[in-house]
């Protein structure tokens, strides 16, 4: 097959077509998905301090607290962030908090409705307008953040259905961001968690009444958010691993030992199996790449 028959194995490996690597990655991810789909097995998760911090921040609020959650992501990042959004709403529901959902990403708007319907749609104790509300999308990015910090009804004059805020019972008494008990941002980038810290949380920090803030963020964004923890941010779910840890914390609270956890609350945990094989493949590829590199360098030096 090879057009260079005297070539060493490592040299041929070095020239391997990248499509073989693509194929390996596809198998490394697809195989575990099928395995988990068929067996339903997931790996155990232990929460890291940042995830525990996020959980505790929501957990310690008294029942009925006002939680503003911003769905700052689109379907492109839903693979990572949807389990976090589902987990946050599920946790708030367990704690009987009032949920105010909004988004600064236009394609995030349908995700709010779908998540609320999925998690609390069948709960008779949660009534729209009294226990949860979908405020939808507003254009303006940081402009909206700045405005909700000063005049919330001006930024969101109505909910996603067009109902004026004055006619929504749970909006009574909400005039600015600091009227909420906690802010959660599930974000895929700009505008998102970082901007919420800058425009939403930091002003309350200097005003002496820090608004508790929790973030769920993509793998790309998480390292940039770490310096905000724990002063400006109570906790963070970093990438799918953070989501899986948070899921396990919420599920441990929601279900009795031995009870089956609904599949919709295990999305991130299911995804940790393809992660394991994908990461292992990456490590293997880097190792093999370096073996080839050093072997080639040694050969070059010998010649």
């Amino acid at each position: 097959m090879s057009d260079r028959p005297n070539e060493s194995f490592l040299a041929r490996l070095d020239r391997i077509d990248r499509r073989w690597i693509f194929l390996m990655m596809a198998i490394a991810v697809a195989g575990p998905i099928i395995w988990v789909g068929v067996t339903g097995r997931t790996f155990p998760e232990t929460a890291t301090p940042a995830v525990q911090g996020a959980f505790d921040a929501i957990e310690r609020l008294p029942e009925g607290s006002k939680v503003l959650i911003s769905f700052d992501f689109d379907p492109a990042s839903a693979g990572e962030l949807q389990p976090m959004a589902t987990g946050f709403i599920h946790h708030c529901q367990l704690r009987k908090h009032r949920i105010y959902a909004m988004t600064l990403w236009a394609p995030g708007s349908p995700l709010i409705g779908a998540t609320l319907a999925d998690v609390i749609g069948s709960d008779p104790s949660y009534r729209y307008g009294e226990n949860f509300v979908d405020l939808g999308y507003q254009a303006g990015n940081e402009g909206v953040m700045k405005q909700v910090g000063v005049d919330f009804p001006k930024a969101f004059p109505n909910d996603s259905k067009g109902t004026p805020l004055a006619r929504i019972p749970m909006m009574q008494g909400i005039t600015r961001l600091s009227d909420f008990d906690i802010l959660i941002s599930v974000s895929a980038g700009y505008p998102g968690g970082k901007e919420w810290v800058q425009y939403g949380v930091s002003p309350t920090l200097t005003q002496g009444h820090r608004l508790p803030f929790v973030a769920g963020s993509t793998g790309v964004q998480t390292p940039q958010m770490i310096p905000y923890y724990p002063v400006q941010m109570s906790g963070i779910l970093g990438a799918i691993k953070g989501a899986a840890e948070y899921e396990s914390l919420v599920n441990a609270k929601a279900t009795a030992p031995g009870e089956t956890v609904p599949a919709k609350y295990q999305e991130a945990q299911r995804r940790m199996a393809p992660q394991l094989f994908g990461h292992s493949l990456m490590v293997g590829l880097i190792l093999v790449g370096n073996v080839i590199f050093f072997a080639g360098r040694r050969k070059g030096a010998a010649e």
Partner: peptide, 14 residues
């Protein structure tokens, strides 16, 4: 995900 794997194999050298 595919391209990052290929890049890691080709470009990540110690």
């Amino acid at each position: 995900a595919f391209y990052v794997a290929s890049a890691a194999f080709r470009a990540f050298r110690a």
